[in-house]
């Protein structure tokens, strides 16, 4: 793509992060959701959802619009209080003991604002400082991340003036700046052009290769199929199928399995005749 991605610099960041303390939560899943539930008024958005994301996996969550993906990920990252259930980040209960979990967690939510009156460099640096990082380290990592994401030229432009793809990338930089062990990304490829998409993909692949875990939601099946090694199909607030990519798609394509599981309907032959110009009468 012509965009050199110094993935090595991200690997180096990994060295900064404190591993799980000895005697702490051991080799369990990176993210474990137990009986998560949320209702909005009469509508049940998430219905006692269980999910385990193994360490080091690249996990895709797919589901139709309104399946509860965003609600689930918000509850898994401490942004939305669940009505019931637990979310364990590397063994730390995020709702009982938020500090430990949040330290190891990087988040990219969908459909929320950023502090967009800051410049890109200021924003990434701010995300680092909020996590108690040293000023010099925050500065250095901010510059490295913006460089890796191809935003170096826009580092001193206000984020409000960024395009959609640039905004996603700077938000990703914010999620990465404290070298988390687990990344939870809600629709990271939404409204992102192919060039930026490639950059984001290479960063994420490098992150997983370096021992990190990525959970992302998407409704683009091809993308999940190409990128992820694990996948969960979510619909109506429940997990319909989960496991490795091959376990879930069982020889078929992910898209076909998805339609089978969710119960999509195809157009009945013979209907919508009038859409064909040959039969147009008026």
């Amino acid at each position: 793509m012509g965009v050199p991605i110094p993935v090595a610099s991200l690997d180096r960041m990994e060295a900064h992060v404190a591993g799980d303390a000895p005697g702490g939560p051991g080799e369990g899943p990176a993210l474990s959701l137990r009986g998560l539930a949320k209702r909005f008024g009469a509508k049940v958005a998430v219905d006692a959802l269980d999910l385990d994301v193994p360490r080091g996996s690249f996990y895709g969550i797919v589901g139709p619009n309104g399946a509860g993906k965003t609600t689930t990920l918000s509850m898994a990252t401490g942004l939305l209080r669940p009505d019931a259930g637990r979310a364990l980040v590397l063994g730390h209960d995020l709702w009982a003991d938020p500090v430990e979990g949040k330290r190891r967690l990087g988040v990219l939510p969908d459909g929320v604002r950023l502090f967009d009156r800051l410049t890109g460099a200021e924003l990434v640096r701010y995300a680092g400082l909020l996590r108690g990082m040293d000023r010099a380290v925050a500065e250095e990592r901010s510059a490295e991340l913006l460089d890796a994401l191809g935003l170096a030229d826009a580092a001193r432009t206000l984020v409000v003036d960024y395009s959609a793809g640039m905004t996603k990338k700077v938000a990703l930089a914010c999620a990465l700046v404290h070298a988390p062990r687990l990344l939870v990304l809600d629709e990271p490829f939404e409204a992102v052009d192919p060039i930026s998409g490639t950059t984001i993909r290479e960063i994420l692949t490098g992150f997983v290769a370096g021992g990190g875990t990525v959970v992302l939601s998407s409704h683009v099946m091809e993308l999940v199929e190409r990128l992820c090694d694990h996948v969960a199909v979510v619909s109506a607030g429940r997990v319909l199928a989960a496991g490795t990519l091959d376990e879930v798609r069982t020889g078929s394509t992910l898209e076909q399995r998805f339609v089978d599981l969710v119960g999509g309907r195809s157009v009945v032959p013979g209907s919508l005749e009038w859409l064909h110009t040959s039969s147009a009468s008026s």
């Binding site: 938020p98 949040k102 330290r103 967690l105 459909g111 929320v112 604002r113 967009d116 701010y126 996590r131």
Partner: peptide, 14 residues
């Protein structure tokens, strides 16, 4: 005034 950008504080555990 932070609007939904307040999530940054929440996610960082400030």
């Amino acid at each position: 005034f932070d609007h939904s950008a307040f999530w940054t504080h929440l996610a960082a555990g400030v």
